[in-house]
Design a binder for these strands. Structure first.
Lengths: 103, 103
DNA sequence: GTATAATATCAATATAGATTGATATTTGTG
DNA sequence: CACAAATATCAATCTATATTGATATTATAC
């Protein structure tokens, strides 16, 4: 029997990276942020107002998302505009599929 | 602008259910369990021995997975054999895709 | 340079959840 | 019925992380 998912070095690493991704998106506010950023680029003040979060909390969650590369940002005067990095999301998403979807 | 992901009653509910799913699978041991159960049905003692977990911890994680319907079990004398419920996993998986995958 | 708006950071606290140790339950065997 | 094997449950503890409040930073406008 070959338990590929937790024996080889590569599969162990993939599992850890997948869990890292899941922990980041397994939070209501962060999943909401990803969801609204899919529609359009947004500055932080739009995000926290839209979600009804305190500014610093929104900022914190954005940092968590950014640290994993799920979102990116650009500055425009005093505002910071965030957007999703769909490529990275797709990469993690297919990594996840490998663990939970049957071939 | 239509932020479907967090405005309508249905989308709010979908988001919560998706986060619930993610929280359950965003744990290394549980994702491993799902992974090895994909290959074959297994009793608890095989699972905890295979993963190097204390028996009660494996039992706990199995309960978390079972409470969401991701795994099911049947009894065979003193043993309890667990297996994945791929239908439920697929259902949650496609729910998740709706939030993170672009159409 | 001062004031203001937007954002980020940091320490402290609160909360959720993983892990452990002990014990209960269930089923089969002598 | 006593005993053992397999599993589940429960309370306690530990750990990770979400949240809050206060403050720092950055860019712009006056």
């Amino acid at each position: 029997m070959n338990f590929n998912c937790c024996k080889t070095k590569k599969s162990k690493q993939d599992l850890k990276r997948t869990v890292g991704f899941l922990k980041v998106i397994a939070e209501e506010n962060r999943l909401k942020i990803l969801c609204i950023l899919r529609k359009q680029e947004m500055c932080v003040c739009e995000i926290w107002q839209h979600l009804g979060l305190p500014q610093n909390l929104a900022s914190h969650h954005l940092k968590v998302l950014k640290d994993l590369g799920l979102v990116e940002h650009r500055k425009e005067s005093t505002k910071v505009l965030y957007s999703v990095n769909q490529k990275v999301i797709n990469k993690y998403s297919s990594l996840l599929s490998g663990f939970i979807i049957n071939i």
